[in-house]
């Protein structure tokens, strides 16, 4: 068990000494996850709102598809996106393979169902009196829609946090699309996998701690935001 304790001590040293390799993986992870979460929120929240707010033929089927995609394995997404962005694929010319943009694109595809599904649930769970209340105050179409989204803001924030957690912790996509290239596309998770494989527990634990710290910070920011807007 000593090697785990040793790993923790070494991890803190690595972080405090500003080890460039460690920080390169941290920065890449933050870049990729920020890009993917931004895109998935931009696309997912409006789609989730539409799915939860309106009734239309095929709504149940749409919901079933989105909910099924929640459990999509990261390697399957990686495989599909790889097929598109590889040199021979339809998007091969864009040079997305082994790039940060490529990883972000695939992660977006991975987490969009989470944003859509949780946003739709948040909208569907709104109190039925809200609509009548807004109508009696004189609100109409667009005003009711905006007010409804604002009423669901905490649940939508939670959708964002959940999606971020999935993006930051996945390893399959980053490995397949990013290729785990040192100083370029190596993320925290791919680095942990690699370092553990090499028997470098200290590096692995250091990166694991950073991952936890990022998750902790994100939750802290969201909690503070909730308190501020509550």
């Amino acid at each position: 068990m000593d090697y785990i304790a040793q790993g923790f001590i070494h991890a803190i040293k690595l972080l405090l000494s500003g080890n460039p390799e460690t920080y390169s993986a941290i920065i890449t992870t933050l870049k990729v996850s920020t890009l993917s979460i931004s895109m998935s929120l931009l696309i997912g929240i409006p789609l989730g709102f539409l799915l939860g707010y309106f009734s239309f033929p095929g709504k149940k089927q749409c919901r079933a598809v989105v909910d099924t995609l929640l459990a999509m394995p990261t390697v399957v997404v990686g495989l599909l996106v790889y097929g598109f962005v590889t040199r021979r694929g339809p998007l091969g010319e864009m040079g997305l393979l082994f790039s940060i943009a490529g990883i972000a694109l695939a992660q977006t595809i991975l987490v969009i169902p989470i944003v859509i599904s949780l946003t739709a649930t948040a909208i569907e769970s709104l109190d039925r009196r809200l609509r009548v209340n807004l109508l009696t105050l004189g609100a109409r179409g667009k005003q009711i829609a905006i007010a409804s989204l604002l009423e669901a803001r905490y649940a939508v924030l939670t959708a964002g946090v959940t999606a971020y957690g999935r993006a930051i912790s996945e390893v399959g996509i980053s490995m397949m699309i990013g290729g785990n290239i040192k100083w370029h596309t190596r993320t925290i998770t791919t680095a942990i996998a690699l370092e553990t494989g090499k028997g470098q527990f200290a590096m692995g634990i250091a990166l694991g701690l950073v991952l936890l710290a990022i998750a902790f910070t994100m939750n802290g920011i969201i909690s503070a935001l909730k308190r501020k807007t509550a």
């Binding site: 009548v132 105050l137 604002l150 009423e151 509550a230």
Partner: peptide, 12 residues
């Protein structure tokens, strides 16, 4: 015309 509902619903 406006209606006050039996159970008040306030916006968050």
């Amino acid at each position: 015309v406006t209606l006050v509902l039996q159970e008040p619903y306030l916006l968050k």
